[in-house]
Design a protein around this nucleic acid. Structure first.
Lengths: 232, 232
DNA sequence: GTGCCTTTGTGAACCCACGCACAAAGTCGG
DNA sequence: CCGACTTTGTGCGTGGGTTCACAAAGGCAC
C-alpha cells in the first residue's frame, strides 16, 4: 500500500478548489492592472468574494507560494494559477450552434484573454453558414470532424438546440474530443473519460425564484406554520 | 432549545437539493411531452443524470409524493416542484445590458417557458436604445428605477460590462430588488438579504482546460512523478 | 542580532452531502 | 384475501469541504 505523504507540490487538487482558481485569477488580474505588487490572503479573499482561510488552503494545494508577513506576489501567483489551470498553453475551441448564444460566446472577450482561441464556428442552418462572426466564417456542421482534426480542436462548446445536442456530442467524441461545454438543456450521455460541464441559464434564475419566493412568504423565518392540509 | 422534529412537509430544503430541482423539472417535462404518466426514481434519475437514491432523498424533502411499487405521477410531481421553486407565479425580470449576451438571454426560450417574463431591456448605449428585441423596445438605463417600480420587477439580470456592473447593482438594490443574476465578471458587493447568483462563462472553460491538461500530462494516473524542481 | 509584528500554512473539529442498503408500504394477479 | 413483487423513503456510515485558531516563518525597525 502506498502511503500518501502530504507535501507542498502534491497533485491532488480538490474539485472545489479547482472551481475557485479562475475566481482568484480574475481578482489577481484586476490587482495587476492597478499595479499592486503583493496582496495578502485577506485582501485577495475579499476581492474574490471568499473566506480568507479557504483561499489560503486552496493556494496551499498548488504549493507554498506566499511569504509570511508579506503576502503573495501578484504576478507570480497569476503565473502559477494560470499554469495549474493550463492557461499558459493555447486551447483551440470550436463552437457548434451559432444562434444568439453561440454568437454571444464567439464575441465574448473572456475566452480569448485566457488562452482560449476560437478555431471554428459551425451551424447546421445553411442560412447562417458563410456569415462572418468575430472574424470567423461560419462553417456547416458537415465539416465538424474535419475542423476538429485539421485545427487541433480539443474543447467543443455545444450551443445548439436541445434536440441536436446529443448527436453533435457523439460526433465530437468520435473525433477524439474529451472536453465538452454544454449549453443545451439536456443531459448528455458520454463514455468514461469524457468531461462534460454544463451551463443552464435558466437554472440559476429558478434558484433565485425559489429564494425570492421564500423571502416573500413570511420573511427569513422558516415558514413552519404553513397550512399543512394543502394537497392540491 | 427548539428540537426540530423531521417531518414530511418540513421546510428546510438543502441548497444542493434546490439546485437540482430544476434538473428534475426539465427531465419531467420531457417525459410529460411524451405522455408518460408515471416514472420510477430509477428512470427519472437516469434522465436527470443523477443517482436514484439522491433523487429520492431530494424529493423526500418536498413531501411524500411517490407511490411505493409504482413511482411518481409525472404531472403531479411537475406541479409540486414548480410550486416549490415558485414557478407557478409569474416573475417579472429585467435585463440590463443588451450586448450579445443580453440579446441571447432576451431571446432564450427557457426563461419564458418557466414563468419568467422579460419585463424590460435596458442599456446605457444610445445607439441600442429603441431597438426591438424579442418583442421589447430597449430603454435607457436612466429609466432603470422607473421600469423596476412600474412593472413590478423582482429579479434583475446584469449582463453589462464588468465596469458598469456594480453601479447597476447598487441602483437596482436601492429600488428594492433583492434577487440578482450576474453575468459580469466581477464580484458584486451587496448588503445582507440580497441574493446574487453569478454565471461566468469562462470559468467553466477554465475548469475544462484544467482537466484536459491533466489528461494530456500522463493520463488518469496521478502525475506524482512530476519533476519537482520546476520553479520558474 | 534581537524582538515585535504581520501573515502564511495547516491541524483539527465540524458540518453537509452522498450513496448504500433495507424496512415499510403499496400494487397486482389469482 | 393473500402472497409475491416493486419501489419508495430513510437510517447510517463515509468522505469531502469549510472554518477556526494557532504555531511557524519571514520582514522590519533599531
Amino acid at each position: 500500500m502506498i502511503r500518501r505523504i502530504p507535501q507542498a507540490r502534491d497533485r491532488g487538487i480538490p474539485d472545489a478548489t479547482v472551481a475557485r482558481l479562475p475566481l482568484y485569477l480574475r481578482a489577481l488580474n484586476g490587482l495587476a492592472e492597478r499595479g499592486t505588487p503583493t496582496v495578502s490572503s485577506e485582501d485577495l479573499a475579499l476581492a474574490a468574494g471568499v473566506n480568507s482561510a479557504k483561499l489560503r488552503k486552496d493556494l496551499s494545494h498548488l504549493g507554498s507560494y506566499g511569504t509570511r508577513g508579506v503576502g503573495y506576489d501578484v504576478q507570480y501567483l497569476i503565473y502559477q494559477i494560470s499554469r495549474e489551470l493550463g492557461l499558459t498553453q493555447d486551447w483551440a475551441v470550436a463552437i457548434v450552434g451559432v444562434g444568439n448564444l453561440g454568437r454571444a460566446l464567439a464575441n465574448y472577450g473572456g475566452f480569448v484573454s485566457r488562452g482560449f482561441r476560437i478555431a471554428g464556428l459551425l451551424d447546421a442552418d445553411p442560412r447562417v453558414v458563410g456569415d462572418r462572426i468575430a472574424g470567423l466564417v461560419v462553417e456547416h456542421t458537415d465539416e465538424l470532424e474535419a475542423v476538429i482534426k485539421k485545427r487541433g480542436v480539443s474543447i467543443v462548446v455545444i450551443a445548439t438546440p436541445a434536440t441536436a445536442a446529443q448527436q453533435v456530442c457523439d460526433r465530437v467524441i468520435a473525433s477524439g474530443v474529451t472536453s465538452i461545454l454544454n449549453f443545451a438543456p439536456v443531459v448528455l450521455a458520454v463514455p468514461d473519460g469524457v468531461d462534460v460541464r454544463k451551463v443552464d441559464l435558466s437554472i440559476e434564475l429558478q434558484i433565485l425564484a425559489f429564494h425570492e419566493q421564500r423571502k416573500a412568504n413570511g420573511g427569513p423565518i422558516m415558514a413552519e406554520e404553513w397550512p399543512d392540509g394543502v394537497v392540491m
